[in-house]
Nucleic acid binder design. Structure first.
Lengths: 261, 261
DNA sequence: GTACAAATTAACCCGTTGGATAATTACTGT
DNA sequence: ACAGTAATTATCCAACGGGTTAATTTGTAC
């Protein structure tokens, strides 16, 4: 079938750009490789992620995962395991990924208000870039986190954000930027909540409000609102932006107040 | 089977408390009725709500709904329709219910800060009292709100909250209680978000943070935090409560406007 | 009480689905 | 060249799941 074509087109180990005539044969062999366990596994995991995040656990179809991965169904069991194993692997991968990116964000070097803004910005954009993550979390919560619970791997991956926030808040209070000490966990949850809910529920909310919440403008407005809300609460200074349709650059067209027709 | 027992125990039309001897016969007949379309339909819908909210669309089992409703499977199709119809009916019921309760909340008579606090309190407690609603919304968003979109019924049910908030914010700004005018839609979403995310994701979050977020204390703390966060942002005054583990009234069990046990 | 409609049940149908078996193919070390 | 192992495929199947058919029971009208 076309399985072969797919296999050829998706090369996991990219051949080195500068290729001497000597290893041309070898390279050709690599491209033609029928067996590629690593690549296969990755493709399976990616396909499974798509499937589970698009349809939930109950709605996911093992056959579809195989098809999307360009693999025989048997391969799923060979490389990963049954449906449940497949799901757990996807979930673990999702947590690994976000934790990795979180770690790269250092808020320590920023002034407290900027650090908070950065944090919100990161969270927001991470969710936008990884919509499957949102869906997976919802899916996992539907089953009361039973898979997360049995994953020692995930349980050992602590988010660095709580400590980061604790530090930032402490510094902010000390410097006078912030007026009050907030519980870092609560603040972390709140910041995640503001982005998560908006994006995860954008479909129903868009219908209810009769406008596309994922449109460029709407997204920008939302980010602005969230930053303003949190910073206003922390600093006590109303960061201008916080006002209704107000933006300090009045030249721009922008629809001021007529939301919800 | 025990279907009969269930049918007898769950009476939908409650008999009037004062019952004359005259209609005793009639009443007895009612109680013995094998046929009870209304009651049956309600039980089916309730069972379907449980099933869909517990397992999602793909994970829901029609047989299980029938069983839970104490009905024959054929009855589902007879009274409501196929699985899809069943789901839509549940979704519509859920929206009807929250809209109805929302309408009863009048914020117009309260001072702006109290109105906001009341609003947060209501939202929070409604979600706690109706966990299926959260699950249903997530489920519906998983399918990109496709069912919501085709429900003219739901689309015609506008939440009164946006206008309520608009009014409250306007009054707040006028009275000087609030410093800035916020977009009511954004504020509405934010308030919903703070509660929704916490509760909807409490399972995974509890694992990640290693503590039960649904425990009494944790819930109280969360409500406190949310109110403080939003009010601080709006008023500019840091409502003390906002501080870490601080509660200024150590004696009182807290819960200012708790109209929900 | 008898005819008629409404409500309810039992049993079955048949495509789907997760999973398993066994055979086949591609690569590896020697 | 060859044996042995790893990867992959084709095929099958038993259970399940949504939905339907046809009969049966129960109440109602006359």
């Amino acid at each position: 079938m076309h399985a072969f074509a797919i296999r050829e087109s998706r090369v996991t180990r990219q051949p080195s750009p500068i290729t001497g005539r000597a290893d041309l044969a070898k390279r050709k062999r690599v491209l033609r490789w029928q067996r590629d366990p690593e690549g296969m596994r990755l493709r399976i995991l990616e396909a499974a992620k798509q499937e589970f995040s698009a349809h939930g656990i109950g709605g996911a179809r093992v056959d579809r995962i195989a098809q999307k991965a360009g693999a025989n169904k048997r391969m799923l069991y060979y490389h990963v395991g049954n449906k449940e194993d497949l799901y757990l692997a996807v979930l673990e991968g999702a947590y690994e990924k976000i934790r990795a990116e979180e770690r790269e964000l250092d808020l320590e070097h920023l002034a407290p208000p900027e650090a908070i803004e950065r944090l919100i910005d990161f969270t927001w954009n991470y969710f936008i870039r990884n919509p499957e993550f949102l869906a997976l979390l919802n899916t996992e919560n539907l089953v009361k986190a039973k898979n997360l619970k049995r994953s020692t791997k995930i349980k050992s991956m602590h988010s660095p954000f709580v400590e980061m926030i604790r530090d930032v808040v402490q510094r902010g209070v000390a410097s006078g930027d912030f007026r009050v000490a907030v519980d870092p966990v609560q603040l972390y949850i709140s910041i995640a909540a503001l982005s998560f809910f908006y994006l995860s529920n954008s479909a129903t909310l868009s219908v209810v409000f009769g406008r596309d919440l994922l449109a460029r403008e709407a997204r920008d407005e939302r980010l602005q609102h969230m930053v303003a809300l949190v910073l206003a609460a922390l600093t006590g200074k109303s960061t201008a932006l916080f006002a209704k349709g107000v933006k300090e650059k009045p030249a721009k067209p922008r629809s001021p107040a007529h939301h919800t027709a």
